[in-house]
Amino acid sequence: MGIFPGFGGWINQNIQQSLKASTKRSEKGKSSSVSEEERYLQGPWYWNPALSPKEKAESMELDHVKSMPMFASDPKYYDSDERVRQAGLWMSENKKHPWHDEPAKVKVKTKNGICHLNIYFTLGRPPQSVYEMFTDPRNVGFFHSMGKYKNHWRTRLDTIATKVLKKDGPRQITEVEKVLRWKILGYNGTIPIHLIIDENHQKVSATYKKVKVKHMKVFEGSWKMEPLYVDQERLCKSRSHISEDEYKKCSGGKGRIGSKVTMEHIFQPSSLLNVPPISWFIRGIAVKVTKTLIQDLREHVIMMNKIEVLDPAGGK
């Protein structure tokens, strides 16, 4: 499936080396080396453009990139202030005008041993915020599994390492190594996943293809996020298609923007495993884990939107 036109040439150029770890150690005996467990700290990262030079310098003194005010997607291609404003709107409007995210609709079709998953769901955060959740390699807990494993809050999907292969405007080609933990019907295990992801930070979309995925001959797909004007009918009295600027104007800046997420995932077990009943078991695990990861995202966003915002006077 040709989801990466001209992609081979980009990879062969190998024009950009792995980004160095953003972690800066103090001079008081701390090692500057990056451990095997911290390889994912290598980026890619983009500083919050709202930071002053002083704030950026102070942030560089932090020991861990998880604590740094950085983005995984390039803020040149969206309004970071508007994203923050929308987050506040979602939290402040939740009680007065609750919004219920649409559960994921997953259509599964298998043909010639290749399984196609077409997925659609909604989330109560703007497309750029949702895109950041999909691309952020800092393991910040979007895909959690509390109580499922020995270590509480251990994530189902961890990023181990990242490497930017090409950056061309809003387009970024990233090599990513992940580990996926699964548990189904009393069985559990881990699957190493090595991917190349072709991201577009302006179109908030991406395609991906395997370098190597255990037990998989084919493993590729895509995702995209589109704006969902959840308060349009209530505040704008209109059901017709409008732009984001028109929505902001007619809603008086009080309209929340959610996301319509469309995903396609295609996989095929390796030849020796692509025979019944083994192939049924592998497909069952793949579909179940995909649905679980999506549900993790939904629960994370629902939880965030339930946080109550305090006004400057100390009231709610």
Rank of each mutant, 00 (worst) to 15 (best):
E177T: 06
Y149C: 00
I285R: 09
V84L: 11
G186S: 11
G124I: 01
N139W: 06
F143P: 00
L235I: 10
V140D: 09
P69C: 06
L185A: 14
T292F: 02
K254G: 02
M263D: 03
K260W: 00
V211G: 08
E61C: 09
G315N: 14
S145V: 04
S271Q: 13
K163D: 07
N12W: 03
G255E: 03
K20N: 05
V211Q: 12
Y131S: 10
H144Y: 14
A50C: 02
T292M: 03
E93A: 12
P192T: 08
R138T: 10
G43S: 06
Q268E: 15
G29H: 06
V287H: 06
I11H: 08
I197N: 09
N12S: 15
V130H: 08
K291Y: 01
S238F: 00
M91E: 15
V34W: 08
S35C: 07
I15F: 04
H300N: 06
M1P: 12
D158K: 01
K95L: 13
N118S: 14
S59R: 10
G255R: 09
R239F: 06
G186L: 00
I294K: 07
T207K: 14
C250P: 13
I294D: 04
M1L: 13
D198E: 05
D81A: 15
H152P: 07
I196H: 05
D158A: 05
D74I: 08
P227F: 01
R138Q: 05
F143I: 01
K212Q: 14
A313V: 11
P44A: 10
P103G: 00
W182Q: 01
Q268N: 02
Y247H: 03
S205Y: 00
S73G: 06
M68Y: 05
S22G: 14
P75A: 08
L157W: 07
K183L: 09
V34C: 02
P44Y: 10
G8V: 15
K107W: 05
W280R: 03
Q172G: 00
K105W: 00
V289L: 15
G141R: 08
V34T: 14
P103A: 07
G189R: 00
F143Q: 02
A57L: 07
N48C: 13
R85Q: 12
K248C: 09
G252P: 01
S59Y: 04
S52P: 03
M146H: 11
R256S: 01
P277I: 11
G189T: 06
Y131L: 06
M303S: 14
Q13A: 14
E299R: 11
